[in-house]
Structures are given as structure tokens and as C-alpha cells.
Design a protein around this nucleic acid. Structure first.
Lengths: 112, 112
DNA sequence: TGGCATAGGTCGTCCCGCGATATATATCGA
DNA sequence: TCGATATATATCGCGGGACGACCTATGCCA
């Protein structure tokens, strides 16, 4: 089960694209929502992550649109990207589960 | 609910010290166990994290022992550290929950 | 005698996060 | 009318943190 490891912004971008293709700014908004407002992706972070993910084949450019005179560049997730996101999700869930056990107020009382 | 953000090695070190004081090498082993073998803390990572956590008041030097002629330098978690670990744990759990929803195979079938 | 586990620590590099900055359009309030 | 805010793209440079390489040292086992 030992796996790759992924930085959090990368993971969040992957999640933001999981359900449907989005453009840069849309990703920023979705990441903010997914992280409950915690993570505000800056431009530098976003495009760095995007470039790396494309290079890794986990996302791909989808199409472009012009809305209100502004260009929108859409990206979609690949199967490889979906798989990686799923693996990372389970890794985090398992970690949180173990963390809760370790952080439990009373470690052992009676039967443990 | 918007919170601080913490790097993963930092979080894992905090977790490793959550239940009892440990020395450096012991932390490395516990982190490995907690992460299901995924994270092998190197010396550079460990001592950097340790220094930062001490400076932040989230862990503190506990005591020293000499076992088999080798020095063991123990650290313990502080209340501030425990609180931070708990917050981060819930953040991760919430994120994993949302991630599962987003990654669900069939997003909407029937009612949703 | 050499290698591995245990135990501590420093140093340097490189990657990544992230703010600053630039460009451009549309809306809204002062 | 001017500035701020939101939408939308992208580059650049700094700094911090992860991590491997390396060093010292003891005890054990083959």
C-alpha cells in the first residue's frame, strides 16, 4: 500500500477537476470550497501545479471558451489522475482514523 | 473554522508524540507506523521539524536517558501541540469526506 | 572484520508554495 | 469619473521546508 505522496495544493486541484472540467479561476474557487475556505490558491501555486499535473499525465487541457471577452482555458482530469486522487483520499482517511485513535483523550480505560 | 495549515511531516511528528514522549529515532519509527510505511522521515526532515515545533511551543524537550551508551533525547507534546493536531485531524477528515463525495463513480443517479 | 540497527546531528540542494506583478474586461459604488 | 472588486490569464523571484548525503558513535551478530 505504500504510495507516491502528493502535496496538498496538487491534491486539491485534482479534486477540483474530479467531477467536471474547469478553467483556472474556477479551480481556485472550487479548491476554496473543497477546503472549507482554508486554501486560497494563488496564481503562482495554481499554474505551477497545473503544469506539473499535465506533465505527469494526471490532467489534460480540455478546450477553450471566450466569455465576456475573457478567455477560459479548461482542464480535465485523466484516469491516472482520478486513480491518484482516490489513492490519496484513502491514505488521508486512514491517517485521520489512526490520528483520532492516537489523540483519544483517555488512551486506555479498563479494556482498551 | 478556517485554520493555520501544517505540512505533513510536521503533523506526523505531532501525532507520534501524541500518546507519549519519544526520542528522535523513536519518532521516526512511529511516523513510519502511523503512515502505514509511507513516510520515512530522514534526519534532515526530522530535526528541522523538531526545531520548528519547539520554537512554536507545540512540543518541548522532556528528558534525556542513556541506554546502552547511546543518548536518547526525549520530546513531549504540549497542549498547544495537541490542540493543533486535533484541528488538523478534523480538517483532514472533513477533506477526505468531501473528496469521497466528489470522487463518487456516478455523481447523480435518480434523485440528486 | 564488516555490516546493520540504534542514536545523535549538520549541511546543501532543490522543489514547491506563494506573493508581487502585469495585462485585460466588466461591474458597482462613491 | 475614479477606484475597488471580481473575473481571467500568466510570469517571476524569494524563501522555507523536505530530504538525501554525510559524519560520529555504540552494541550486536555473523
Amino acid at each position: 500500500m505504500a504510495a507516491s505522496r502528493m502535496t496538498e495544493p496538487t491534491y486539491l486541484v485534482l479534486l477540483a477537476l474530479a467531477d467536471e472540467p474547469r478553467h483556472g479561476y474556477g479551480i481556485v474557487q472550487e479548491v476554496r470550497a473543497l477546503s472549507d475556505g482554508d486554501v486560497r490558491l494563488g496564481a503562482g501555486t495554481l499554474y505551477g501545479v497545473l503544469d506539473r499535473l499535465v506533465a505527469a499525465g494526471q490532467i489534460a487541457p480540455d478546450h477553450e471558451e471566450v466569455v465576456d471577452g475573457r478567455l477560459r482555458r479548461y482542464y480535465r482530469i485523466t484516469e491516472s489522475g482520478s486513480a491518484a486522487a482516490a489513492v490519496e483520499t484513502e491514505r488521508l482517511a486512514a491517517l485521520a482514523r489512526r490520528a483520532r485513535r492516537v489523540l483519544a483523550p483517555r488512551p486506555a480505560l479498563g479494556n482498551a
